Simulated assay, not measured.
Amino acid sequence: VTLIDTRNDYEVKLGTFSNARDPRTQSFTEFKDYVARLDPAQHPKVAMFCTGGIRCEKASAYMLQQGFKEVFHLKGGILKYLETVPEAESRFNGECFVFDERVSVVHGLAEGEAVLCRGCRNPMRPDEAVGSLCRECAEAAPAGASERERQMELARARGEAHLGDDAAAAAARN
């Protein structure tokens, strides 16, 4: 069985199933290009998964149209798996990116440790962060970015926001 993670590269980076293939897509529209490089004769059985199951339903139908004979997908996606499969029995490694304020979840759908890069908005593990940026954004940051990081740290130390409505309210109070 060929196991395919149908999610985008930034999602796969946080976590995936053991032995899953990463198509290295930046958007789901690139999945067709990945499938075009696969030979249905060499991959007679395909299993795939995604975050919640919707992307897999579309990908499964597409692969069947392209001549793949047996195509399966994880019903309910990784989220249902993490909700129902005990961690001790799990084959999922890492965290699952989610499109809400939690950023990522782990088994039992508990909030994970991942944070979003303030530059590219991609998820990253805390140990990958350079301030509030991922390494790639920190290396490409223009002059003044380190000062912005310093100001953000000072605001955090004061228990205040650096940007947004909360920061505007704090400035008005000051």
Rank of each mutant, 00 (worst) to 15 (best):
V35D: 02
Y62H: 10
A169E: 12
F72H: 13
C96P: 01
K75M: 05
Q66K: 15
A167K: 06
G159N: 09
V98Q: 12
R37H: 12
R156P: 00
R148S: 06
C134V: 01
R121G: 00
V130H: 03
D33Q: 15
L109Y: 11
C120Q: 05
Y62F: 11
P23Y: 04
E136D: 07
T84E: 15
D127Q: 06
F28G: 03
L14A: 11
A88C: 03
H107W: 05
Q65N: 13
G76K: 02
F31H: 03
S146K: 14
D127R: 03
V103W: 04
G67Q: 06
H162P: 00
R121F: 06
A110K: 15
L133W: 00
F31I: 07
K13S: 14
A138G: 11
V105D: 06
N19H: 15
D33V: 03
R102M: 06
E149V: 07
V103M: 05
V12H: 13
A61I: 07
L154P: 01
R21W: 08
V106S: 08
P142A: 15
E147S: 13
D100L: 11
R55V: 10
T29I: 14
V130E: 07
H107V: 08
P126I: 03
N8G: 09
C56N: 05
A129M: 13
R121P: 00
H162R: 11
E70M: 08
A41V: 09
A88T: 14
D9A: 11
V85Y: 04
R173H: 01
S90L: 08
A161N: 12
Q42C: 08
T84F: 08
L38Q: 10
V105S: 05
R148D: 09
E153P: 01
